[in-house]
Design a protein around this nucleic acid. Structure first.
Lengths: 148, 148
DNA sequence: GCTTGACCTCAAGTTAACTTGAAGAATTAG
DNA sequence: CTAATTCTTCAAGTTAACTTGAGGTCAAGC
């Protein structure tokens, strides 16, 4: 378990020191100690940062990300909450797939007005199951109804 | 092709009038005309808004979204650019899958420190193909050598 | 021992994406 | 016709996620 200065972490992760301090302040990562004033990070932080970067790119806020993985690496959250988060990500994945399909369709379909193209509309509908109706008797997810 | 007041669009899309005006200002949507001062929207805008919402939830900025679909519905972009966008989304999907798998793993793995768990590390590596490099013989080029 | 450079804190500035509020215009309801 | 709604513009405010800058600390190299 190597010990890293903030500059090392920045170099290895591609994230600026100012952002790293901000993440620490926000409770997403933590330095293991100080040498003088300087934060000392464990190299484990690099894995955590990878997760953070992924989450951000996926459109999650820092607060949401902090909710998935606690400050010290992994969560104090219950199995249920984590699986709910995973379900939320699954929903996002389905949306992204629809978006990608739509874009590919638009790229290749020669029709003049896509908004009237049947294929196009169907593509959009795929992701349109926002209301939670899952057209199967899904396992009754009790309790946590995340996001709104 | 129905004509809608901004309030109707807001009610049907769940997006506030202020945000709709902002989107118009940003070139993401456009009203078809005015009646007096009031914007008149075609109901096609609802489809466009669906795409916008999807894109946002996927972590794209309004500018990026505007780059995918032009103001009037669909793009003035070339096939190539659109497929490049689709590829970008594919990358995001792969990241999200890795993130979801990681979270599910964390939820179920009883190990004390996930950061040292082999399964965990492997999960993270799956999404590690950032550079657009297509899985050739991984040359150990300088730069971000993740995990140590 | 002194300077250098990487770090520190704290306050203020920045950008995106909106929202809110004031003040006014036009449509609709009675 | 009057009043109430629903819209309009424009300016300013808000939040998240950082960055920047000023002024200070501290261990290391010369």
């Amino acid at each position: 378990m190597k010990v890293l200065d903030i500059g090392d972490v920045a170099a290895l992760s591609g994230i600026k020191p100012s952002a790293l301090r901000y993440y620490e302040e926000a409770g997403l990562i933590s330095s293991i100690s100080r040498r003088g004033l300087r934060r000392q990070f464990s190299d484990e932080v690099l894995l955590q940062l990878k997760l953070i970067v992924m989450g951000k790119s996926a459109g999650f806020s820092l607060e949401e990300i902090a909710g998935m993985f606690g400050r010290n690496g992994m969560p104090e959250l219950s199995r249920d909450v984590l699986h709910a988060k995973a379900d939320e990500i699954d929903r996002k994945i389905r949306e992204l797939i629809a978006l990608r399909n739509t874009i590919r369709h638009v790229a290749d379909c020669p029709a003049p007005s896509h908004l009237e193209c049947a294929t196009f509309r169907r593509l959009l509908d795929v992701a349109g199951k926002r209301g939670g109706r899952r057209r199967k008797i899904a396992k009754p997810k009790r309790g946590v109804s995340p996001t709104r």
